[in-house]
Amino acid sequence: MRKPWVGGLVAAVLLLGACGDPGSGGTSDDAPQTPDVTRAAEPPKEEAEPSATPPSSTTRQRAADKPRDRTGTSPKVLYLGDSLAMENQNVLGDLLRSELGARYRSAPYSGTTLCDYLDDTGKDSLVPDKHKAAALVRAERPDYVVLQFWGNAWGYTPCMDGITYDKARQKYFDRYAADAKALASQIHEAAGGGADKPRIVWVLQGPDPITPDRVRRVDAIYEAQARASGGIVADAGRAVSPASDRHKWVEKLPCTAYETENPAYCTEPGRSRTALHRGDDYLHFCLAPTTPKSRPCPTRSPGIRRIAAEITRAVGESS
């Protein structure tokens, strides 16, 4: 079924399972339930799992005192986020390894927002304690923590306490800014603070055809927080926007030089244009159909590679 994204509730249900935004007329009461996003979002089994037992104060201090492994020059990167990170994670990992020789860990959860990764959200979070940002920083000791969040705007994740963009816009932005500050603080504190703390990479989002001003303001929050706490901005959203208008949503764009040289990423080579989105999903960049259980994107998708390449560039230039 390939109906346009404006076609109705079916598309909205699929988007919700992945962090969608139903539109400027929606409310939190409109949100249907999403199947088992937590199980679907667990990191690959081959990666070491941090302990599920919350660390004691002694354990926390030992982790903070432990110096980060600085042998060699390859950065260690931790990638957290919502369904956009879920679909991007394998491509980003491949690029970070091939371009920068990076060590890499990802732990995205679909449907989440910043507060889900905070330590103090408990049972109201879609992220288990062992995968909270601070817990993973203590376990992994990364050089960079990449945060990619669309900005869940319609009350799906419980930790937002029902605050939605539609019902209370200023309250939504105030809460989002407070959560960005709190998350940055917890990440730095988990690493012991000081010069050895990881740098946070705030990924700016692409255009939203339904609530364009929301994305502008969410991106501005990320930029402000990066300035305030020594972070980095990766403007991945620009890579999936027209050159003439950073905040204009489009389904297709002209192929880049890389996409032209690698035809699998140029979906309409005769017109030198490539698809960023499926016709029935305005939000995600995976060109495979959305499934009830979230997953890394299983097919070559130009938008995902563009986003991952910009994140890799930002990490590389700051290393």
Rank of each mutant, 00 (worst) to 15 (best):
L9E: 14
A11N: 14
G20K: 13
G23E: 09
T27L: 08
P32H: 06
R39M: 14
E42P: 08
P43H: 07
P43R: 05
P44Q: 13
A48T: 09
E49P: 03
S51I: 02
S51E: 04
A52G: 12
P54R: 01
S57M: 08
R62T: 12
A63V: 08
R68I: 09
T71N: 12
G72N: 11
V77Q: 06
Y79H: 02
G81V: 03
S83T: 04
S83G: 08
Q89D: 14
N90E: 15
D94L: 14
L100W: 00
A102R: 07
Y104W: 04
Y104K: 07
Y109E: 02
Y109H: 02
S110Y: 07
S110A: 13
S110P: 11
T113I: 09
D116I: 01
L118V: 14
D129I: 11
K132L: 06
K132D: 08
A134N: 01
L136Q: 05
R138G: 03
A139L: 05
A139Q: 07
P142F: 08
Q148C: 07
Q148A: 04
G151P: 05
G155T: 04
R169P: 09
K171N: 12
Y172F: 07
R175M: 04
A182I: 00
E189F: 15
G192S: 08
G194N: 06
K197C: 09
W202H: 03
P207W: 06
R217L: 12
I221R: 01
Y222W: 14
Q225D: 09
A228T: 09
A228D: 07
I232F: 06
I232E: 04
D235A: 02
A239F: 03
A239D: 00
A243T: 07
R246L: 11
H247K: 15
K252R: 13
P254V: 01
E259K: 05
C266S: 02
E268T: 06
A275F: 14
R278L: 07
D281Q: 15
Y282K: 14
L283F: 13
H284F: 10
H284W: 05
F285Y: 10
P289R: 06
R295L: 02
T299C: 00
I304G: 00
I307R: 07
E310Y: 08
E310P: 04
E310F: 07
V315F: 02
